[in-house]
């Protein structure tokens, strides 16, 4: 892990604080989340206090501090999705997966994240699982999708 982060940081030699966000983004793309070790190493690299890196990372929606589940479920909660039933979809997901927004299930199978708007209002309500989209979702279809994933 450490060596992976370090080699990644080599691409950002002689950079300053303004590359903090790109660095964290790349680490998260690579590791799936920001580990404490990563935050410390980035701090050393940019000569920045870790408190400020952590403060920054907790400000933005993108960054997470625990690994994603095997299935990362993202629920769109834009305006169109809201009026077309995103709330019951989310409630059902929380019930089925027994986790809330931002959490990962204990067995590491599922993680859940609410998105502000994915911009596919014509397909509302929509979710994505590991990048694959499911539009015009109904409770029944969602149940089937999740049940199917749980089999694996």
């Amino acid at each position: 892990m450490r060596s992976r982060i370090e080699s990644l940081l080599e691409n950002y030699a002689h950079t300053k604080r303004d590359s903090l966000i790109p660095i964290l983004q790349q680490i998260q793309d690579d590791l799936g989340y920001l580990s404490e070790e990563a935050v410390v190493l980035v701090g050393k690299h940019l000569d920045m206090p870790t408190s400020q890196i952590y403060g920054l990372a907790t400000f933005y929606n993108q960054f997470r501090f625990e690994p994603k589940g095997k299935y990362h479920v993202q629920v769109c909660h834009g305006t169109a999705c809201h009026v077309l039933g995103a709330q019951p979809i989310l409630a059902l997901l929380e019930k089925m997966l027994k986790i809330k927004d931002g959490q990962t299930s204990r067995d590491g199978q599922f993680s859940l994240q609410v998105m502000s708007c994915i911009g596919a209002c014509a397909q509302a309500p929509a979710i994505s699982i590991n990048g694959k989209f499911y539009g015009k979702l109904t409770q029944e279809r969602l149940k089937d999708i999740i049940d199917e994933l749980k089999q694996h």
Binding site: E36, V39, P49, T50, S51, Q52, I53, Y54, G55, T58, F59, F65
Partner: peptide, 28 residues
């Protein structure tokens, strides 16, 4: 110049916290 404290989280969840939300004795 110690920078132990920083705002953590956003909106009404904002708190003044330390790195990784650790207790003060683990902080700088």
């Amino acid at each position: 110049g110690v920078s132990t404290l920083e705002f953590v989280n956003r909106g009404s969840k904002t708190v003044v916290g330390t790195a990784m939300n650790r207790d003060l004795n683990f902080s700088s």
